[in-house]
Design a protein around this nucleic acid. Structure first.
Length: 458
RNA sequence: GGCGACAUCGCCAAGUGGUAAGGCAAGGGUCUGCAAAAUCCUUAUCCCCGGUUCGAAUCCGGGUGUCGCCUCCA
């Protein structure tokens, strides 16, 4: 199994720290707003990573953190005029609603930053003692010049950072690239006690502390969006490795952007779409298909026409299962012959190659084509088995049955409407025939002052 | 100013040295009272120029275009 590692900038054979086990840490949401569809892409992709490892027989521990204290939450609390803790609660709940709507199963752990303040203070203190951090007026900074390996992930040189166009001016810092570990709190802001006075932690420390606690000092995979490479993950590695001297995460995976009209989605351009709004218009599975049809490291242009096309593609897959009455056969004994196994291997080969979901999907369609021409339930089963690895077909019963139920209701209503027309024309023979025929199917019509109602009388 | 990514059929997209997957759309045939569905068939030499090689979409150099990072960001 090969994974592209941002740290080395190449695909590497994945070797877990412990055979048969894989520990994954994904950077989750900052709970200050509903998350946008670009976030959804990342969350959805890492769900597939977790899923695929499980499919390949690994025992997976999957952690996704939640940042519930930070400048943005404070800003939002002022905007909405409710306490920071209420902002966090509101958007954490929204996060779970939206990931659930996207069909993403729960992670094993969702550590909250505010639950780990003590550990963070301890780490910052340690860094200060080791000479990696310094305090100025109640703020504590990490000194990037003290860290010989700084820049290891993003490939940046400390000298180049100086020349950067957007380097913030902060006369307190020894180097403009030094980043905040502890921030003194202003009146009214959330605060905790520390050796440097009342304040709150900086952004990157939480991930060090929480991953260490839940996954160990060194763990297998750390994931996030490409925009987190610098500064977040760079700074995270810096303090983790300065503290322990050992490797923090062994494989760093970063998902590409979701763009709008070729440009990055961002709040300043006001060109972002909230996941919950997109979900109102399009099926979660269509959105999933749309994302997975391109490799995770490439950027994707948000395009609703393409989501509609994806929806059509999914419908075509479902139509095969419907025609074969898949649910009736689900419990049948399934045996894969050589041709089945060969396609399964193709799928695995694609996924083994740095999660090539686009290619994996093409295997799905190949299986679909053969399923249709052969009516072989083993192929149908294979289609479902592999599709489920990508998070498709997870609600088969609902998907295949509700549609039918809904259509049945519509059909009954249609007949009622025709009977109404016949009644108007005083064509009692046809009107009664419809009523009697429906009754023989177990559907009793009842003409009430409010219109015709029906019930199942079987 | 420094660093980096990408450019493949109408649209989306896989392919990283051996002769262009797949999806959506489109056109044609079969089927059909008509239609739908199904099914079969059809559609690219890979941004441009030069080089390496028996052989390049794939490697190298140059050009053009698009985008990203350089401390808010999944």
């Amino acid at each position: 199994m090969k994974i592209y590692n941002t740290l080395t900038r190449k695909k590497e054979e994945f070797v877990p720290l412990e055979p048969g086990k894989v520990n994954i840490y994904l950077c989750g949401p900052t709970a200050y707003n509903y998350f946008h569809i670009g976030n959804a892409r990342t969350f959805l992709f890492f769900d597939i990573v977790r899923n695929y490892f499980k499919y390949r027989g690994f025992q997976v521990t999957y952690v996704q953190n939640i940042t519930d204290v930070d400048d943005k939450l404070i800003d939002q609390s002022i905007k909405e005029k409710i306490p920071v803790s209420d902002i966090a609660e509101k958007y954490i709940n929204a996060f779970f609603e939206d990931t659930n709507s996207l069909g993403i199963p729960k992670a094993d752990y969702y550590p909250h930053a505010t639950k780990y303040i003590e550990e963070m203070v301890r780490l910052i203190k340690e860094l200060e003692e080791k000479g990696y951090a310094y305090e100025v007026n109640g703020d504590v900074y990490f000194s990037i010049n003290a860290d010989k390996k700084y820049g290891i992930l993003s490939g940046k040189k400390i000298e180049d950072l100086k020349a950067g166009a957007r380097v913030e001016k902060n006369i307190q810092k020894k180097h403009p690239g030094d980043f905040t570990l502890w921030k003194r709190s202003k009146p009214g802001e959330p605060k905790w006690q520390s050796p440097w006075g009342e304040g709150r932690p900086g952004w990157h420390t939480e991930c060090v502390v929480m991953s260490r606690k839940l996954l160990g000092e060194t763990f297998d995979i750390h994931g996030g969006g490409i925009d987190l490479i610098f500064p977040h993950h760079e700074n995270e590695i810096a303090q983790a490795q300065a503290s322990t001297g050992s490797i923090h995460a062994r494989y760093w995976m970063h998902g590409g952007y979701l763009n709008i009209s070729g440009e990055k989605m961002s709040k300043s351009l006001d060109n972002f779409f909230l996941t919950r709004d997109v979900l109102k218009k399009y099926d979660a599975e269509a959105i999933r298909f749309f994302f997975l049809s391109k490799h995770y490291r490439s950027s994707i242009d948000y395009n609703e026409d393409l989501i509609k096309e994806s929806s059509q593609a999914m419908k075509n897959l479902y139509s095969i299962l419907k025609e074969l009455d898949y649910l009736k056969y689900e419990d049948e004994d399934i045996s894969y012959a050589e041709t089945h196994q060969k396609l399964k291997d193709q799928f695995i080969e694609a996924m083994d190659d740095d999660f090539n979901t686009a290619k994996a999907i093409s295997v799905l369609f190949e299986i679909a084509k053969i399923t249709r021409s052969s009516n072989d339930m083993n192929f149908a089963h294979l289609l479902v088995e592999l599709g489920q690895v990508l998070g498709f077909f997870t609600n088969l019963e609902e998907k295949l049955e509700t549609d039918l139920n809904q259509i049945s209701e519509e059909l009954i209503q249609l007949l009622i409407n025709y009977r109404q027309l016949f009644k108007k024309e005083q064509n009692w023979r046809m009107a009664d025939k419809i009523r009697n025929d429906l009754k023989s199917l177990g559907i009793q019509l009842k003409d009430t002052p409010a219109g015709t109602e029906w019930e199942i009388v079987k």
